[in-house]
Design a protein around this nucleic acid. Structure first.
Lengths: 216, 216, 216, 216
DNA sequence: AACTAACCGAGACGGTACGTCTCGTCTTCGC
DNA sequence: GCGAAGACGAGACGTACCGTCTCGGTTAGTT
């Protein structure tokens, strides 16, 4: 966290500080992210304005504008902080078990629906803002893609998945189904749904013939 | 179209109509939808304000507020009008051909990316507005789901798809992959992608064993 | 009343009626004036809008615009109707008694302060609208000036007032004092005030030397 | 001027002032008053809207609403600023000369009729707004009343006016005649009118018998 | 009795201004 | 020089009325 490197939406953390200058206030930084996280859980994305974040954080507006480019940048960092902790890489020795683990975990996150408005809001802004779009992919999507890809690759190397399969398309279909169900259909992501996805993946890409699922 | 019935985001088209009252102006109605469509193609969702729509349409603001509840309602109707015409039901006598037809058509619409910001904006607002969410599903998703379901069911009845398959999950995965790629990854929806989806669906749900890809 | 002639603020009462035409609705006319009078007693001049008058009178807006040029014209007619009845010409055989009668009567009207906002509002508009200014003078001031002039002239012809006096200035000072006190100072128009005016007029223009007030 | 203390129509000039706050902008304050003064000279009172003042002053609307309660409050301060400079206290050693001086001066102000619509507009609003009424009296009437009262009192102490006279009524009649002529009759305030008022005052309250004012 | 024009109620229309809200910037202090 | 406070120019919000315009429906007079 803490501007953790080189996100273009942050403005960096005052490198090469001049003599006499106070450095970026850790207290203010955290207060702002916490305030943003609280507010996005209380009201619609469009009502989480910079002024409200500043007031909640007990901070001047300028302190926010000094370090972030927009409210989207603040919320992006706040969301990324939430997501970051939540993508463990399961390792149960079996592709199906790992995939189930992964899906359960990620569905639990979506079902905790508090973050949906934030994510949809960021998604919407990202359509018109290339920088934000890039940050969205890097900070909210990539970690999960990396984890899922690792699981899939382990499945291939263990011989549980057929080797010729296009992992990208499988990943798009798995993740896509989750996002589509949550944001678009607003349908629940329950156990049955998870099992159906697993079944579909195994039928399409598993090394066992699909016949066992439908004995013909 | 034209308030086509009972959308709660519209306010109805001249309800009851007292004696002598002037009825809703068709000219204004169309000008507003056209202006909204134009503007959403020109700038970010958040910058398409009611005042701009009214100005562009040569209409008083009140005329918009008289018939719609919010800018989202206007844009929803404008988007629905665009989508409405574009979902033909292909019938080529073969599941794969029909599915390819359908995917090519829908991908072409997405690639004609003009409507993406609008749709993402509506999607974001729908997270916090149940009425809007319902309208989003009914007017932007359902037509396509119906078409795809028909294609899938024909595949089953023709014996091209296994009968036990959960069509809903397949639909979520197909549509999900499209939306995910477009809005989230901003990756192109090209021919290769379409073929990969078809291959994956056939492998998972087709009656022919996937053996050709994995000769076993 | 009833457009009583040729006020340019009214638009006349359907002259030279064509065959089959319905003439001006007496019911609507009266309802409008009554509604205007009621409203001006209930709220500030600026809040007495045409729409409110129409709604109160149970009348379409167009019916008002058909017969009057503006809300000021409506209120002018309503005020004139109130004022018209209230300027009797006293005749007690003595200038002082007549003047006292007149002043008491007119002060009672002003003290019934309900009409002050209306009159001040019309006065304000009259500053920028010559037609309205003329109507204001003709319909709200002239009747009283005529009565007061008659009283003064009778005083002169009876030998109670000195003949050389400029009656216009006396009239301006008397009426001016009333208006100034009411609209500007918002001070009461009580008996003492009336007597002081009478004393001042008699001292300045009476044929008896003012010595009685200051025996010197 | 400049919010000179405690006018309730103003909202005070940066009350208390927390640490670090920016204080009221002198530039904006003056620009607003100037814009209001210009506009009221260009168009009817009712057309001098806040938006026009803000636009003319190159100022946000909120900056006006932050410091004044209404357009009337702005115009009141603008008018008061105009009036303030223009009430010198004459001192020619003689009551008649002083009174003539005073009347000439005040009539010149009224004849410069640019301010009439503003003053009548404020007067009208003051009928329904106690705060505004009070401000009107304090800031537009009182200075003049004070000057005139001083002139009258000097007349009494010099023996030019009879001591028993009620100065308030004389003041009401003098000022009343001016306002009545200007706003109501829209008659000119010329030299003859001034002389007639003086004659009438001297006849009614002077220590010389009135006879000498006419022939002699 | 049928015709017919103007009046009537209702209210939608293109507009202007309202007073409020939030934006992102700028200014001033105190630490 | 950072951080708080908050004034500033800007402009969209949703509402209230403006004055104009169309609607049917009603109401007198001719014909």
């Amino acid at each position: 966290m803490e501007g953790d490197g080189n996100n273009p939406l942050d403005k960096g953390s005052a490198p090469a500080v001049s003599p006499g200058a106070t450095r970026r206030s850790k207290r203010a930084h955290e207060a702002i992210l916490n305030a943003a996280a609280e507010l996005i859980h209380e009201r619609p994305y469009s009502d989480v304005c910079i002024e409200a974040i500043a007031a909640r954080a007990g901070v001047g507006k300028q302190t926010i504008y000094r370090w972030w480019t927009s409210k989207a940048a603040v919320l992006m960092e706040a969301c990324a902080a939430m997501v970051a902790r939540e993508v463990p890489l399961p390792d149960n020795g079996s592709f199906v078990l790992d995939l189930r683990d992964y899906l359960q975990h990620i569905c639990a996150f979506f079902e905790n629906q508090l973050s949906r408005p934030a994510i949809a809001g960021l998604l919407a802004e990202a359509q018109c803002n290339a920088e934000l779009a890039r940050a969205f992919q890097d900070r909210l999507l990539m970690q999960r893609r990396t984890v899922l890809r690792t699981i899939l690759e382990r499945g291939v190397s263990r011989g549980e998945l057929r080797p010729g399969v296009d992992l990208d398309v499988i990943m798009d279909m798995i993740h896509g189904a989750l996002w589509y169900r949550t944001l678009l259909l607003k349908a629940p992501l329950d156990e049955a749904f998870i099992e159906n996805i697993i079944a579909q993946v195994m039928a399409g890409s598993g090394t066992r013939p699909p016949g066992n699922a439908a004995p013909d």
